[in-house]
Amino acid sequence: MPALFTRLSRRRELLRIPAHLLQEAVAEGWSKWPLETGGILLGKPGPDGHVVTDLIGPGPEGRHERYGFTPDSDWQAEQVAARWATDSNLHYLGDWHTHPGGSTRLSRLDRSTARDIAAYEEARQPNPFMLVLALGRDQTVRVGAARLINDRLRRVVVHPH
């Protein structure tokens, strides 16, 4: 029995995201290339992982830079409130962003952002997900994600469906 427990405890967590939402994020990323963009992930916990049900972009006043972006926080808050008004079971799961010409590896700033989210009481998310879309110069897209657990970002499996 101990070997089975060890195997199960090492299993990576699953983040499910509908293909159309993933494509929406990718399209937003290419529209800002070679600058970064991103937004918010909303969803629900499921029996075999969390499910992203909604994606919110950077907003009209978002600022996009080569190695970072600043969202239009007021606009995002309005969007989240509107979605919660129609589905109070939604959870803020974390953030998504792009790495133009980069990798899915999370940067020091990404790690700091995850910790800030976890510490921000209004987010009600002590273990946020960070979804990264690496947009390659050769038009490739790689997807990676991690979740902050015990103050460490741990890789999760992203499953488009």
Rank of each mutant, 00 (worst) to 15 (best):
102 G>C: 06
120 Y>A: 04
89 N>P: 00
18 P>N: 04
81 A>Y: 04
25 A>T: 08
15 L>H: 08
87 D>Q: 05
146 A>C: 10
101 G>T: 10
20 H>C: 11
34 P>F: 12
25 A>R: 04
85 A>G: 02
34 P>N: 15
68 G>Q: 05
153 L>K: 09
145 A>P: 00
47 P>F: 10
136 G>L: 06
45 P>A: 13
37 T>C: 12
138 D>V: 07
28 E>I: 01
151 D>P: 00
59 G>P: 06
129 F>G: 02
10 R>I: 06
42 L>I: 10
47 P>R: 15
82 A>Y: 03
88 S>H: 07
63 R>E: 06
148 L>S: 02
13 E>T: 10
110 D>T: 08
1 M>D: 15
103 S>Q: 04
117 I>H: 12
45 P>L: 11
3 A>M: 15
24 E>Q: 14
22 L>C: 02
113 T>F: 12
27 A>M: 13
119 A>Y: 01
41 L>W: 08
144 G>H: 05
7 R>S: 14
121 E>G: 09
70 T>W: 05
81 A>P: 01
91 H>C: 14
118 A>M: 03
20 H>Q: 11
33 W>T: 04
6 T>Y: 04
154 R>S: 04
98 T>M: 08
70 T>Q: 08
85 A>M: 08
44 K>Q: 10
79 Q>R: 15
160 P>G: 05
55 L>H: 03
33 W>I: 06
24 E>G: 05
93 L>I: 03
51 V>E: 13
13 E>A: 09
147 R>G: 01
136 G>W: 09
24 E>K: 08
135 L>Q: 00
140 T>M: 00
3 A>K: 14
2 P>T: 15
156 V>D: 08
36 E>C: 11
151 D>Q: 15
156 V>C: 06
105 R>P: 00
89 N>L: 09
83 R>N: 12
139 Q>T: 12
95 D>K: 03
117 I>Q: 09
48 D>V: 02
121 E>F: 13
6 T>Q: 14
161 H>W: 00
